[in-house]
């Protein structure tokens, strides 16, 4: 069976100041699967994830060598090419963080924000998309009556599902997940894992996790990082 690739990382090294965080990593991930990256804390898992959407550039003080390729709509894209538009790349490569990070605004505005930023201004379309993405995230019945309340009043698990919904609203082809359940309690973890499995149909998921049991439950494949190198 020929596996179709979605992301290919080639000879990536990452330096934070003097310190080398990743050394010469090459790996590829298959389309429409859940691929897991495991490893102890400090092994560079999250950093590896951030080289794919170049989010590390927002912090400063870091430097990357190597290449990353992504296949979006069947087209090969060199992520570290000069002319590439980062906002457009990040709209196609969604990201969910370790600590749920709803923006300090209403649930509804959290979800319409990416739409507005991508130039989708039609109110009806926005409303339609919010509803469908919340239903996909099994959140609709819980938040429908309180769409215009502060998103930060939701429980941790609800917040994280909202963040996944927010990342999915632009229909990305890749979803990067940085320890999406490590700050949540057990019940919430289960819900999120179910949600992730259901998303596999529509996009490819790359998940960083240090929880091996979780990796066994949801991931189709896994690699381990030890001190910045692949095992």
């Amino acid at each position: 069976m020929i596996v179709e690739k979605i992301v290919e990382i080639k000879n990536i090294s990452f330096f934070y100041g003097e310190r080398q965080v990743l050394s010469n990593i090459s790996i590829s991930f298959a389309k429409q699967t859940i691929s897991a990256i495991t490893g102890a804390s400090g092994s560079g898992k999250s950093t590896l994830l951030s080289t794919i959407n170049r989010l590390w550039e927002e912090v400063g003080g870091a430097r990357v060598e190597g290449r990353v390729k992504i296949w979006l709509e069947g087209q090969e894209i060199d992520v570290y090419e000069r002319q590439i538009s980062l906002p457009e790349l990040r709209r196609k490569v969604g990201m969910v963080f370790q600590i749920p990070n709803p923006l300090p605004m209403s649930i509804y505005k959290n979800l319409t924000l990416p739409l507005k930023m991508a130039g989708i201004k039609n109110r009806d379309l926005q409303r339609e998309k919010v509803e469908s993405v919340l239903k996909d995230a099994f959140l609709w019945s819980e938040v429908e009556p309180r769409l215009h309340e502060d998103a930060r009043n939701l429980s941790g698990g609800q917040q994280q599902r909202l963040c996944i919904a927010r990342a999915m609203i632009l229909e990305p082809e890749v979803l990067l997940l940085d320890e999406p359940t490590s700050s949540l309690d057990e019940g919430a973890v289960f819900e999120i894992e179910n949600l992730l499995l259901s998303l596999k149909e529509r996009c490819s998921l790359l998940m960083v996790s240090h929880d091996l049991a979780q990796v066994r439950r949801v991931a189709d494949s896994a690699v381990e990082l030890v001190a910045g190198s692949l095992q």
Partner: peptide, 26 residues
């Protein structure tokens, strides 16, 4: 907090959009 800027960037926001839609209202 810088987390606002990072979150917006991860959602594919241009800098101007981050400023107008996320930072200024806050």
């Amino acid at each position: 907090p810088d987390s606002l800027r990072l979150t917006a960037a991860a959602l594919g926001a241009e800098k101007s959009a981050t400023i107008i839609l996320v930072l200024l209202p806050q």
